[in-house]
Design a protein around this nucleic acid. Structure first.
Lengths: 340, 340
DNA sequence: GTGAAAGCGCTAACAC
DNA sequence: GTGTTAGCGCTTTCAC
């Protein structure tokens, strides 16, 4: 590898001091015009590029934000994450910020990964996704007064910036849609109950039942894990019941797709024999004509990143909370129940 | 934000020198046992965590590898990328490496993003994906003798490490499968032709036709862009021809899914009215019973990362080239053609 | 075994 | 306008 070109190299080459070279190259303060030109000519010629690490150390800023993906199990594959990353990446590009990414399963190592980024000063801020009720990440970041934004709320008594979907209202609407079609045996495949949105979504579901005077049956609520496999397992259980539901609401689209694939396998017709609905409206969902609640993940990710960068750049203290209404998308996976 | 704890803080606290503290904390050389204990006690108490930036500057190593996602158009969403990131992230976690990620459309800014990571010394190595025939990224990295590995080959006369799928053999098999079913009007939705794998895949397709004495018809080859929308557009064109194909091979699953969605829309039955096949075997593909060539993206990503980290850690010079055979997965999207 | 000194490459305060 | 000095936080000779 050829000898690195540093400010020193240019300084020696031009016979000027390192300081002057630095100033000329960052368009700082007053440098004589011909000096500036001489220096940038030399910089070009020598192929100078500033060492970001040195700059970071000096400026105590990394121009980087961090994201640690909570991956449950190996080989996670969730369109949610690719939309998220695309949104964050595209937005950060506008500010010349970089994204430092780790994948880590929730648990002990997880906080270590956060410490590494935070206390190791690898990033200027963090995006926290899939918030949990007693979220140790949020507790930790808040305690460290480190800049962060979250995709989702938490049950902690902590004031922080977030964007979230109003899952309660969403599932209220969705469940009411099914009820209006004539369903009263409606099952719910829930997310892991430590996730905050699990409660909101479940609450919306229960509220709709209540309003329609349908008795809430706990056996109809099966815990899922947000993966397709999880959706499949839960659906199999539900359909094996002696009094199976006529409609299944999954807490996200991926599990709903799992449900659909089980129905297909059993030769049941989606939206006829059993109605299915989800949440997210990820790319494949329209192809299955899945009734769902649309959550603009990409846009939310962009907005979150913008919020975070502004916090960092302006040192903003006040927190911003945004609650979005998901949009009900009715497709053919939900229909009137068969007369039984 | 509370005062940062550095080596100096601990040094003052314990009355020892910064050097000794550093040595004690990195388990280096000989430090008296009680000194070491005293120091780690103090470090714990004060909540010390080494500043990674400073360490990087000193060691001239970042323990980070870079990935710049070539995103065509806004809101890209390709399961290919999430599998890739998952694989890289999981593997890097084993080595305590981080991943620095950018999204950038191919073009002028793209190389700037590479320069930023390479010459700005932000990373120790790079993963290049979706290689192109005259790939400026590979040319650049090779010229800079910067460690990198690629997912895919290139037409450049450059020796570098890569893993690639044998697309030619794959598409030969896939096309022969369709021919054996009785198809002779087989269309091909190609990737952008500047991508290296486009040629291999096209070549496999043509080779199969040739071997079966089927005349190659250029009108049956439509350029796509690897997205679902692109697959839809191409399919519409193909089906509107006066002599439409009975089978459509798409260069990747995403475009194949686009083809399927057009067929559904037109009320045509997949695998019956028209056969469809793809490449990748991404998660949704099995749900559409898509015949495809399986490419283990996640595993390839892990292996690529391992190769790269080894190059970095051991300063390996010799290049490694791996060509994998994709596996033909026959499902119901391909069937015998209708008698016409 | 421990410390002093130098330096990674850069920016910033202060002189002149 | 430009140079000198100091320092970001760490590791690494080289003395003692």
């Amino acid at each position: 590898m050829s000898q690195r070109v540093t400010l020193k190299t240019i300084a020696q080459y031009t016979g000027l001091s390192v300081t002057t070279v630095s100033r000329a190259l960052t368009n700082y303060s007053d440098v004589a015009n011909d000096t500036r030109e001489k220096i940038s000519a030399a910089a070009n010629e020598l192929g100078y590029y500033p060492n970001q690490t040195a700059r970071q150390l000096q400026k105590q800023r990394t121009d980087t934000i961090g994201l640690i993906l909570p991956t449950y199990g190996p080989r996670f594959n969730d369109p949610y994450f690719s939309e998220l990353i695309a949104g964050i990446g595209d937005e950060l590009a506008l500010y010349n910020f970089d994204l430092l990414l780790s994948t880590r399963a929730p648990g002990v190592n997880e906080i270590a990964a956060y410490r590494h980024m935070v206390e190791g000063r690898r990033v200027d801020g963090l995006v926290v996704v899939r918030t949990r009720k007693q979220d140790p990440r949020i507790a930790y970041l808040s305690r460290s007064s480190f800049p962060f934004v979250a995709f989702g709320r938490s049950d902690l008594d902590i004031d922080f910036s977030y964007i979230d979907e109003d899952g309660e209202t969403g599932f209220l609407q969705l469940t009411q849609h099914l009820i209006s079609l004539g369903h009263c045996k409606i099952a719910f495949i829930s997310p892991p109950m430590n996730l905050v949105f699990a409660n909101y979504r479940l609450r919306g579901y229960r509220l709709a039942l209540e309003k329609a005077n349908i008795t809430y049956k706990p056996v109809y609520v099966i815990p899922g894990d947000l993966t397709r496999r999880g959706g499949e397992r839960a659906t199999r259980k539900l359909l094996a019941m002696e009094d199976p539901p006529t409609a299944i609401i999954a807490a996200n689209d991926l599990m709903a797709l799992g449900a659909i694939s089980v129905l297909n396998e059993l030769g049941l017709i989606v939206g006829k024999d059993v109605s299915i609905a989800g949440f997210d409206d990820i790319p494949p969902s329209d192809m299955f004509s899945l009734t769902t609640l649309r959550q603009p993940i990409y846009d939310i990710a962009r907005q979150l990143s913008a919020m975070l960068v502004n916090m960092i750049l302006n040192g903003t203290i006040e927190k911003k909370q945004i609650l979005l209404k998901p949009k009900l998308i009715i497709r053919n996976s939900t229909g009137v129940p068969l007369i039984s």
